[in-house]
Amino acid sequence: MFDSEDMFRAFKPHRGKAIVLVTGTSGRDWRDISDNESRDLSLQGAMGQTNSAALGFALAQPNEKVVLFDSEGSLQMNMGILGTIAGKKPKNFFHFLMDNECYATTGGQPVPNASEINYAGMAREAGYAATFQFDNLEEFQNNIETIMKAEGPVFVAMKMIPKIENEPIGRRVRKPQRSRAETIKVMQAELGITVA
């Protein structure tokens, strides 16, 4: 397992102008690392559906690289999306999975079959163009350039150290974050997109 902050730091130099979306507890680390906020997009809002929304955006903007940092809890709620993504074959879609084997935000309870399930294997058999899996930072660093040059849809499973939250929700301190609507508005202005 490796740390999501370290993973994001290793990814950052290879981002280019990609649109980046995140989910889950680990995804929060990206906010402090990204230096191109106008291309950070939030499409969260329903259980397990950020991956679906990211696919929709990738299909709408085929000339933009779209990078999703999904979580395994989210993916388990919407596993069929692997087939949907593979079926549409978006060449610009990069699906990273941050797998900490638990629901970190609810106290660290394990997800079903947490340590044995093979997400990269599932994505490969679903029909993704390329799949990778990493359980340490060094291998991830050595391969991220190749990953970002690959033709999508690409799936990258990564074992992440869980950052478990045990405080009652009312006592948790949250960093301020931009709303979904704000990220959409800024990103659309950046890309010159108008809603039809």
Partner: peptide
């Protein structure tokens, strides 16, 4: 017209949102 077959109905509204945000009309 581009038809996007999905695996479960819950996906359709999220995919549609992504398309709309990207300037399309699903």
């Amino acid at each position: 017209l581009d038809v996007i077959p999905s695996s479960r109905e819950g996906e359709t509204f999220a995919i549609a949102l992504g398309l709309i945000v990207g300037g399309k009309v699903p």
